[in-house]
Amino acid sequence: MLPKRIILVRHGESQGNLDTSAYTTTPDHKIPLTALGVAQARRCGSLLSSLVSSGGTSQNYRVYFYVSPYERTRSTLREIGRSFSKKHIIGVREECRIREQDFGNFQVRDRMKKIKETRERFGRFYYRFPEGESAADVFDRVSSFLESLWRDIDLNRLQNDPSQELNLIIISHGLASRVFLMKWFKWTVEQFEHLNNPGNCELRVMQLGRGGEYSLAVHHTEEELIEWGLSPEMIADQKWRANASKGEWNEKGPWCLEAFFDHLADSDDDARKGEGEFFDADAAFENHLE
């Protein structure tokens, strides 16, 4: 019952991408696509149609869309939909939790420039925009969406026929896509800070590997993963996932013990010895204070 692919799509070029002054007069959620953005979305639809119909007959795949409620994402969905017939689309759901990061209300360009310079010094993940959100806030709501997504799959709320290949297509924004991948693959905050934003209508394809784990390395090349900002360790993990059996744990990933501890004792005796050394150092410090 698992989807064969979960595909993240960033919206096409918007008027705000072209000219940031658009945000000073138009609310972010109402920013439209440019003519180029519409063309990008149509090409993206053709690419998606070819991708999900590959490896089988033209009749045995189905798609289900999740879309951010913003004007530019809904417009991107409409153009992508031109490449699919009704029989291949199971359904579509507007999902507010995958909307764009909230930067505040109307955005004064000079003020936003200074704010974003401050964000670079503070750190992209934790910096909260005045009257808006941090990437950490977006992570929390995207995490909640991911839990709902799993329930939809688990309870077959998408009404998928097991004889058909299901593809979930999530049309969202650059940051929301990055934190979705961060949550899914358990990337650290430090690793997130090095990720690059996807381009307009660029795809991130998570595809089931041989053992039932999702991986970016099934569809994408190592060169693409490097371009996106994945480290050698993250790329190695994606390659491992492409062939790993479902439920296995990759001890070489960023969540391995060595990533969090300077030194771990190999045995209980070594640990007790280490405790003794610690207490000796603590007593020396107290004597120094006296």
Rank of each mutant, 00 (worst) to 15 (best):
D137I: 09
S144E: 14
P130G: 08
A135I: 08
W150T: 09
I153V: 14
R121D: 07
E120Y: 00
F122E: 11
A136V: 06
F129A: 09
P130H: 06
D152A: 10
G123S: 05
R119V: 06
E131V: 05
E147R: 15
F122T: 13
S148C: 13
Y127G: 02
L149I: 00
E117S: 08
R124V: 03
T118M: 09
L146N: 01
V142M: 08
A136P: 03
E133H: 02
S143T: 11
E117P: 01
R141G: 10
A135Y: 11
K113P: 01
R151D: 09
S143D: 09
F145P: 04
F139R: 07
I153H: 10
L146H: 06
E120F: 00
S148L: 15
R124H: 02
E147L: 08
F139G: 00
R141L: 11
S134K: 08
G123L: 12
R128F: 05
K116V: 06
M112H: 02
S144K: 14
E131D: 15
F122D: 06
R141Y: 06
R151V: 11
R121Y: 10
A135N: 13
I115K: 07
R128E: 10
S148M: 14
R119L: 13
R151W: 08
P130T: 04
M112K: 03
F145L: 05
V138L: 14
R124L: 04
K114Y: 04
E133V: 11
A136H: 15
M112T: 08
V142P: 06
D140S: 10
G123N: 04
S134R: 11
Y126D: 15
S143H: 11
E117A: 14
I115E: 14
P130I: 03
D140R: 09
G123Y: 10
L149E: 05
E117W: 00
E147D: 15
E131W: 04
F122S: 12
Y126F: 09
F145V: 12
L149R: 03
F139I: 00
W150R: 13
R151Q: 10
S143E: 06
S134P: 10
F139V: 01
K116G: 03
F129D: 03
I153K: 06
R121S: 12
F139H: 08
E133M: 04
M112D: 01
D140T: 07
K116S: 11
S134H: 12
R128L: 01
S143V: 01
I115G: 00
F139D: 04
R119A: 12
R141V: 08
A135K: 01
V138G: 01
R151F: 07
L149N: 00
D140G: 05
R141K: 15
F129L: 02
L149S: 00
R124T: 02
M112N: 04
D137V: 13
K116A: 08
K114F: 02
R121E: 15
S148G: 11
F122P: 01
R124A: 02
A135S: 12
F139C: 10
R119H: 08
F129E: 06
E120C: 00
W150S: 04
V142T: 12
R151H: 13
Y127S: 03
K113I: 05
K114D: 05
K116C: 06
